[in-house]
């Protein structure tokens, strides 16, 4: 009999790095089961009654925080939100102290978003609670990648695929600063998909091909050619006031996704975006809103289910530690 002991034994969800195909499968399967809960009148199950989940956000993100909060609540966990202004975070000792204080309250899971890469690995070495990475710097954002994988998985039949193997996914935009791109690239590779990174050279990680097994394109048209999944990344405003890019106008002109460019992709290609969208910058409104192509709202719905699944598996994984 398959059981949790063989499929999910991790204490933390720190990233897609290191997750096996089976572990990703377990998480997605659980999420699929939990989606049904979100469609009922009574959108709540008692599974995590008596468990405490703390959302600790060092960066503003109403969407992700709300998604985790709702996920916890629909599983009947007690959810506490803590937002910490980035400006007050200067020293790591403060972070460790904050977490130590939280730990004294004996939470079962702490969900953390932080502007610096690697913070969760650091905390995991010093704290007992199960940690979920809700985005650390430009490193990883595993629940976003998992919800993207679930969204793609739903679309596989329409894309003429039975599996991820051989699927062509183009991740486009500011790859350098994107934890979404990193986590997706790692997860997609684990499942056997072909990953492309498409974007300006100034926004591409060093040695991306070696680091992620991705093929790098600088021209959007080339990167999109034949792609079945087009994943657009959000362009952060602060990139504009630096030497990364000359202007929004130029970026939209060369790397913005519009209808004409989308025709380069595979005939049924789907368009994804982690949100929030910069309309008219990385993606044209008519593409983002096209129900035939855009699965952006499915991504949001799947986000909730994936986060419920993550909390469920982590809350129980402690049993077999």
């Amino acid at each position: 009999m398959r059981s949790a002991g063989t499929l999910w034994t991790r204490k933390h969800l720190l990233g897609m790095e290191g997750l096996s195909r089976e572990e990703i499968g377990a998480l997605l399967d659980t999420a699929v089961s939990l989606r049904e809960v979100n469609r009922r009148d009574i959108k709540k199950v008692p599974t995590l009654r008596g468990k405490t989940v703390i959302n600790l956000f060092y960066e503003n993100s109403t969407r992700t925080r709300t998604s985790f909060e709702l996920a916890g609540k629909r599983m009947s966990a007690d959810v506490v939100n803590m937002s910490v202004a980035s400006s007050s975070v200067k020293k790591g000792e403060t972070l460790l102290d904050t977490l130590a204080n939280l730990q004294a309250m004996n939470p079962d899971v702490v969900v953390i978003r932080h502007p610096e890469s690697g913070v969760l690995e650091f905390l995991a070495r010093h704290l007992d609670a199960a940690l979920v990475n809700a985005g650390d710097g430009r490193h990883e954002h595993p629940t976003q990648a998992l919800l993207d994988l679930l969204t793609i998985q739903d679309q596989l039949p329409l894309l003429g695929q039975s599996r991820f193997a051989g699927l062509v996914v183009a991740i486009c935009g500011d790859v350098l600063h994107s934890r979404v791109a990193r986590s997706n690239a790692i997860g997609l590779q684990t499942l056997g998909a072909e990953v492309r990174f498409v974007g300006p050279a100034t926004l591409m990680p060093s040695q991306a091909a070696e680091a992620f097994g991705a093929t790098v394109y600088h021209r959007l048209e080339e990167g999109l050619a034949g792609a079945q999944v087009v994943m657009m990344l959000r362009l952060q405003n602060e990139r504009m006031n630096s030497s990364y890019l000359p202007s929004v106008r130029e970026y939209a002109e060369f790397w913005g996704l519009n209808r004409a460019r989308l025709r380069q992709a595979a005939p049924n290609a789907i368009v994804m975006h982690p949100g929030p969208i910069n309309r008219g910058v990385e993606i044209a409104s008519d593409v983002a809103d096209d129900p035939e192509r855009s699965v952006i709202l499915e991504q949001v719905a799947n986000g909730l289910a994936v986060r419920m699944a993550a909390l469920y598996l982590l809350c129980g994984a402690g049993v077999r530690r």
């Binding site: 398959r2 999910w8 377990a26 089961s33 939990l34 049904e36 599974t47 469920y312 598996l313 049993v319």
Partner: peptide, 22 residues
């Protein structure tokens, strides 16, 4: 009906990632 999410033994048997759909 799949009752996985209604069980009272998460703390003793751990999660079941093979959940059927209700």
């Amino acid at each position: 009906l799949d009752i996985t999410f209604y069980r009272d033994d998460l703390d003793t048997i751990g999660p079941n990632p093979v959940v059927g759909a209700t």
